[in-house]
Design a protein around this nucleic acid. Sequence first.
DNA 1: CACCATATAAACCGATCAGTTCAGTTTCAA
DNA 2: TTGAAACTGAACTGATCGGTTTATATGGTG
Lengths: 205, 205
Amino acid sequence: MAHAAEIVRKGRKFDQVLQGARQVFLADGFEGASVDDIARAAGVSKATLYSYFPDKRLLFMEVARLECLRQGEESLALIEVAATPRMVLKEAAERMLGFLLSDFGQRVFRICVAEADRFPELGRQFYETGPMMVRNRLTEFLTECVDRKQMEIDDIELAADQFAELCKADLFPRLVFNIDATFSEAEIARVIDGAVETFMARYAI
Amino acid sequence: MAHAAEIVRKGRKFDQVLQGARQVFLADGFEGASVDDIARAAGVSKATLYSYFPDKRLLFMEVARLECLRQGEESLALIEVAATPRMVLKEAAERMLGFLLSDFGQRVFRICVAEADRFPELGRQFYETGPMMVRNRLTEFLTECVDRKQMEIDDIELAADQFAELCKADLFPRLVFNIDATFSEAEIARVIDGAVETFMARYAI
DNA sequence: CACCATATAAACCGATCAGTTCAGTTTCAA
DNA sequence: TTGAAACTGAACTGATCGGTTTATATGGTG
């Protein structure tokens, strides 16, 4: 973790700084957030902020790193193996969309996309704790299904990715391009059920 | 077209300005692009630029509007109805990915996502000439398939959206988060074939 | 109490950038 | 050829922002 080497972690206000930074970065993005705003939001002087983080970039990376970790931990909740594949898929879809459609998930995504070339490491970090995590969990589960002869899948990783994408149908474009900010239960259920049905039609035995 | 009302269109260098703006905006985004850079790239003085476009925002919107139009026109090429559904889907997938994976498509997407809240109209514009266009074309085709009893689909629009999403499996996240910038023919073929197979498994009679 | 790390407010610096101004030059059509 | 419209380049304004500095205050510890 070379990037954290220069960060001084001791001090009473360290957490305050991170908390304020998180709030402002998430609301305004990297360029949009001013250090003065962050200091104000954190209830801390700019000098204090700079005593912890030598520059804005590093502060941003630390916030992003923590958010990625948080996201990763959340998705680690176990998948119930006792249930039917249909139920498991539905559960997984609900969890995925729960994050993707949340105000918070949306902001993180937007920032990652926007800053992906300014912060090359950031994109990878988000990818690994997000989409890749989802794929791994799903791959695990699908492998079990194949072993139990419930499904027949030649390319399991592709199948996992397909399911993840199916869950975004309609909803994701509308969200990403700011057509809608929230969706009704019915809209979400329509997409999830559709995803499960299509997936099962292809892969269930 | 209220937003274009203030734009003066006459003058020798009008197109030069747009062309330079397109180049710089696409490379650097809205905030990242400086008006001086644009003027330089356009081979035009800043005063001339401002004589056409009263401010940077308006210039950006005009560039984005034209790009959206261009994109829309491109996707309007007819779908060959004589071919089998499988072939039509494959063709549609190739065209979609051709745009999405191109350096240019990627930049436009990135900018739209990043500036979606700074330019509310921009997101909608892109959505309507992009994802919505694709959905409409696909919906048309799928309706024909249903009429011809080649497929059985209860929610045709959802099916269209599903197919579009299936085409993005694996590739899109990797692109968006800057994991990879280009993909091999084999990688693309794998995803397209997978998308067609899954789609047909669900909906073909 | 005295010390020292920590924190603060506010002024300040240098750079960048959108947008303006202006005196002078080019272009082109009548 | 002439005159107006279009264009130029360069300087300038005013504002924002990242980052630094300084003089001062606070609070816990030995």
